[in-house]
C-alpha cells in the first residue's frame, strides 16, 4: 500500500476571504438551475378551461349512453328476440318510462337502501378481514408460503359455488350472503396488500432502515404507504367481486320480508315483466359503476400524488 501526497488546488481560486461571496454566487447559480429544470407549466386558466375539462369528461359518457340506447332500439326493432307476438320486449322509450315510474315509488328506493346496506356491511367486513390477512401473511414468510396459493385459489373460485355451503351453514339469511361476499372480496383485498408489500422498493427499505425505522414504525411510515396503490387496486377488484356475490346472493337466497334489488328482479322474472327487469338491471349497473368510479378516482389521486400519472393521461 503506497501513500502519496499531491497538491490539488494550484488551479483553484486561493484564499478564504471570498468564501462568502462564492457561497452567495453558488446559491444563486443553484436557484437558477432549479428554475430552469423545474420549468413551471403555465396553461390557459379560468372558466373556458374548466368548461373544456368538463366537456371532455362528459362526452364519452353521453356517447356510451347513446350507444346503449341505440343497441336497445335495434334489438327491439329486430326480430332477433322472436317476441313480436307476445309484446314482452319494449323499446328504450317505454323502458325508460318504466324506470322513471319506478323511481317515483318508495318500493324501489327501499330495495336500493337494503341492497346498498348489505353491500356496505359485506364490503366493510371483507376489507377488514382481507386487510388483516394481507398484513399478517405478507410479514410472516412461512405463512406466506403456505397460504399464498390458497388465497390465489380462492380468487379463481366462482363465488356462486359457495352458496350451497353458505345456505347449509347459515340457512337462508343475510349472513349467508355476507359470508359469500367476504369469501369473494377478501382474497382480492388481501392479495392487493400482499402485492404492495412485496413490491415495496428494496432501496426505500434500505433508506428506511438506515434512518432508524424498525418494526411497527417501518410498517406504518414506509411499507403501508408504499403498498397503497396496489391496495387500492385490490379494493377495487374486491368491490367488483363483492357486488357480484351480493347480486347472486339476493337472487338465490330469497329472504321473506326483505325487499332488495334481487327480490325485485326475481319478482319481475316471475311476472314475465321484462321492462321492469331491465329497469332494475339499469339501477344495479349504475350503482356498480358509481362505486367503481369512486375507487378509480381514489386510485388516480394516489398515483398522481406519487408522480406515477402524468396530467392528462387517461385513467
Amino acid at each position: 500500500m503506497a501513500s502519496t501526497r499531491t497538491p490539488a488546488d494550484q488551479g483553484g481560486r486561493p484564499g478564504t476571504s471570498r468564501d462568502g461571496r462564492l457561497a452567495a454566487a453558488e446559491s444563486s447559480a443553484i436557484a437558477g438551475l432549479d428554475s430552469l429544470e423545474i420549468g413551471e407549466v403555465t396553461g390557459a386558466r379560468g372558466a373556458g378551461r374548466l368548461a373544456r375539462k368538463a366537456w371532455s369528461a362528459t362526452w364519452p359518457k353521453l356517447l356510451a349512453i347513446a350507444i346503449v340506447l341505440g343497441a336497445w332500439e335495434l334489438f327491439y326493432l329486430s326480430d332477433f328476440h322472436g317476441d313480436s307476438t307476445n309484446g314482452l320486449v319494449k323499446g328504450p322509450g317505454p323502458g325508460l318510462a318504466n324506470l322513471w315510474d319506478q323511481l317515483q315509488h318508495a318500493q324501489l328506493w327501499q330495495a336500493i337502501g337494503t341492497t346498498v346496506q348489505t353491500a356496505v356491511v359485506g364490503f366493510a367486513l371483507a376489507m377488514l378481514i382481507g386487510s388483516v390477512i394481507g398484513a399478517v401473511v405478507s410479514r410472516i414468510p412461512p405463512l406466506r408460503a403456505a397460504t399464498g396459493s390458497i388465497i390465489s385459489g380462492l380468487q379463481t373460485m366462482p363465488s356462486i359455488a359457495w352458496f350451497p355451503f353458505a345456505i347449509i351453514l347459515f340457512g337462508t339469511s343475510v349472513r349467508a350472503i355476507l359470508f359469500v361476499m367476504v369469501l369473494g372480496a377478501a382474497p382480492s383485498i388481501a392479495n392487493g396488500l400482499i402485492t404492495g408489500v412485496d413490491y415495496t422498493p428494496p432501496l426505500l427499505l434500505r433508506a428506511g432502515r438506515t434512518m432508524g425505522l424498525r418494526g411497527v414504525a417501518l410498517y406504518r411510515h414506509l411499507i403501508l404507504p408504499a403498498s397503497l396503490p396496489a391496495y387500492v387496486a385490490g379494493l377495487k377488484q374486491g368491490w367488483a367481486f363483492a357486488w357480484r356475490s351480493l347480486m347472486a346472493g339476493e337472487l338465490l337466497v330469497i329472504l321473506i320480508g326483505h325487499l332488495s334489488l334481487g327480490i325485485l328482479l326475481n319478482n319481475a322474472q316471475d311476472q314475465l315483466d321484462l321492462t321492469s327487469a331491465i329497469s332494475i338491471m339499469i339501477v344495479i349497473l349504475v350503482i356498480g359503476i358509481v362505486v367503481d368510479g369512486v375507487f378509480s378516482k381514489t386510485d388516480q389521486a394516489v398515483r398522481r400524488r406519487r408522480g406515477l400519472l402524468t396530467e392528462g393521461q387517461p385513467a
Binding site: S3, R5, D9, G12, P14, T16
Partner: peptide
C-alpha cells in the same frame, strides 16, 4: 494505493 490531498483552499474540478 492512497493519495493524500493537502487542503490549501477551494478546489475546482477543472483546476
Amino acid at each position: 494505493e492512497e493519495y493524500h490531498v493537502p487542503r490549501t483552499g477551494p478546489r475546482r474540478i477543472d483546476s
